[in-house]
């Protein structure tokens, strides 16, 4: 079983790369900055508002940067061998989430499609994302590595919602063909709440194992 692990990790990184590539393609639709393309075709009543426009494009281009953390920050080997890279990469992640990707997510969350339910979901997601990331940063600045690890797992679980939200949408549509806004309301919650539950389970599981 032990020698299987590197293979599994490699496979998962491959899949993760695939999804990051899909996310990159979604992002590239907005270059050059175009307000009558893709998702924005159904947000025309908001796109005239400067703060929405700024927040939207900030979120599109900043949020994808946070996915890069998945390649570097959770590898024990990389952390040991290149601690400087872990720190630099971590700073970029934290500042990006706290000051660009997170706040912009909160602003566009206020105008989310699907009414109050999905607006609440996206705003809560943005707030928790910033809170977890902030706590992760403050705990490592206190040299509390265990707490840093826990908060970062939670933070990154929410980062992954970019992918899981879209993946759930794909699965739900393929399976049930729900109405477009119904599926959106569902994935607005499903896309990150489940991630957090899995993250908590993961933290508990590995925490208990550490004590043994």
């Amino acid at each position: 079983m032990r020698f299987m692990k590197p293979l599994l990790v490699f496979l998962l990184l491959l899949i993760y790369s695939f999804f990051c590539w899909l996310m990159l393609r979604i992002t590239l639709q907005y270059i050059p900055v175009n307000t009558d393309v893709a998702f924005l075709r159904i947000k025309q009543e908001y796109i005239g508002m400067l703060h929405y426009k700024v927040a939207f494009f900030a979120h599109v281009f900043a949020a994808i940067v946070s996915l890069a953390a998945g390649f570097t920050q959770f590898s024990e080997r990389l952390r040991r061998r290149y601690p400087k890279m872990h720190r630099w990469s971590g700073w970029i992640y934290a500042i990006n989430v706290l000051f660009v990707a997170g706040p912009s997510g909160l602003v566009i969350g206020l105008y989310a499609n699907g009414g109050w339910s999905s607006q609440l979901a996206f705003c809560l997601l943005a707030v928790l994302w910033m809170v977890f990331t902030g706590l992760a940063l403050s705990s490592i600045l206190r040299r509390d590595v265990a707490a840093h690890r826990r908060w970062m797992i939670r933070s990154f679980a929410l980062t992954l919602s970019a992918i899981t939200l879209r993946a759930w949408k794909f699965v739900l549509v393929a399976a049930f063909e729900p109405r477009p806004m119904d599926v959106y309301r569902i994935v607005a919650w499903l896309g990150w709440v489940l991630n957090l539950l899995v993250a908590e389970w993961w933290i508990r599981r590995s925490g208990n194992r550490g004590k043994k």
Binding site: L12, I15, T164, A199, W202
Partner: peptide, 9 residues
């Protein structure tokens, strides 16, 4: 941690 996520994905 990633392992778990990606098995879903």
């Amino acid at each position: 941690f990633q392992l778990l996520y990606f098995s879903i994905l």
